[in-house]
């Protein structure tokens, strides 16, 4: 069941998206997400969906990877949809029961909300699917490096992020192992009432935390024994350089953003 969690996973590839500078991908994802919050009409949502499909097609990543990524959040999506469906009071009433009514606006907003969440998640997945955790954190570090002048520990922050990304799959694997060990001795994750099954999860958390702390300890020793002392005076082997494709991609996303804002202004 935990195998469905694809956060932080990278799919090796050679596509344009894989070759882009991580900073470009970060900036473009950011622009895309902001644009998503400006979108409110069929045209703008249609454009954004189209752009995401285009990017996904370029990346050559199998669509099933995105569906698998969305699976764990289905509950949140459905929940949001239902809330929006019943709590929107404007528009023509379609039908109603038990004092609740569903209106045309409600349906529209609920659909938009669902699309928005799915696009939001899929676009970040596209980022992590096509970027190795290492280059992702390099990108974050470089983008935030102006803050170093303000004594913000940017390097440390980026290092924390890369460790977190690196260890998500490890922790999932670990959790799977503990679940198996407990199942083998009759722990009940499958039958029984929901409450019983939730209770069975509790003995899973303690060993998982213990092992996470143990790993952290081991990693700290490994880093120290290789003389890691934080970001001060640290140089890097591969410096990031923008290429022509990076500027073109960024230009395209800025255009996209402008287009969405104009549409909003014109009220289309």
């Amino acid at each position: 069941m935990l195998k469905d969690i694809t956060l932080g996973q990278y799919f090796p590839g050679e596509s344009l998206l894989h070759r882009l500078d991580p900073r470009t991908k970060l900036i473009c994802t950011f622009i895309y997400i902001i644009a998503l919050f400006f979108a409110g009409s069929y045209i703008s949502y249609g454009t954004l969906i189209l752009v995401l499909f285009l990017c996904a097609a370029i990346s050559k990543i199998h669509p099933s990877a995105f569906f698998r990524g969305l699976k764990p959040v289905v509950f949140i999506i459905v929940f949001t949809a239902i809330l929006n469906l019943f709590y929107t009071k404007t528009g023509r009433e379609l039908f109603g029961f038990w004092g609740l009514s569903v209106t045309t606006d409600g349906v529209k907003i609920a659909v938009f909300m669902v699309i928005r969440i799915m696009l939001l998640i899929s676009s970040t997945f596209l980022l992590t699917y096509t970027t190795t955790p290492m280059s992702l954190t390099d990108g974050v570090e470089q983008l935030l490096s102006p803050l170093k002048k303000l004594h913000v520990p940017v390097h440390e922050f980026a290092m924390m992020m890369s460790i977190a990304l690196r260890f998500i799959p490890t922790l999932i694997e670990e959790a799977d192992k503990i679940i198996n060990a407990q199942k083998a001795r009759g722990a009940d994750f499958e039958t029984g009432k929901l409450l019983d099954r939730a209770k069975a999860l509790l003995p899973l958390l303690v060993p998982l935390f213990v092992s996470a702390f143990r790993r952290a300890d081991e990693l700290a020793i490994a880093m120290e024994s290789r003389c890691y002392r934080g970001g001060v005076g640290r140089t890097r082997m591969n410096n990031l350089v923008f290429a022509a494709r990076d500027f073109i991609t960024m230009g395209f996303f800025i255009l996209l953003f402008t287009f969405i804002v104009v549409i909003l202004r014109l009220g289309l």
Partner: peptide, 26 residues
């Protein structure tokens, strides 16, 4: 059935290849 599968786990005891993965209590 799930119930039968769970019953089988009490009848067929499995010691894993890596014992450290199997110990989890305090």
């Amino acid at each position: 059935s799930k119930q039968l599968r769970r019953n089988a786990r009490f009848q067929v005891g499995l010691v894993f290849q890596y014992p450290e993965h199997q110990l989890f209590e305090e």
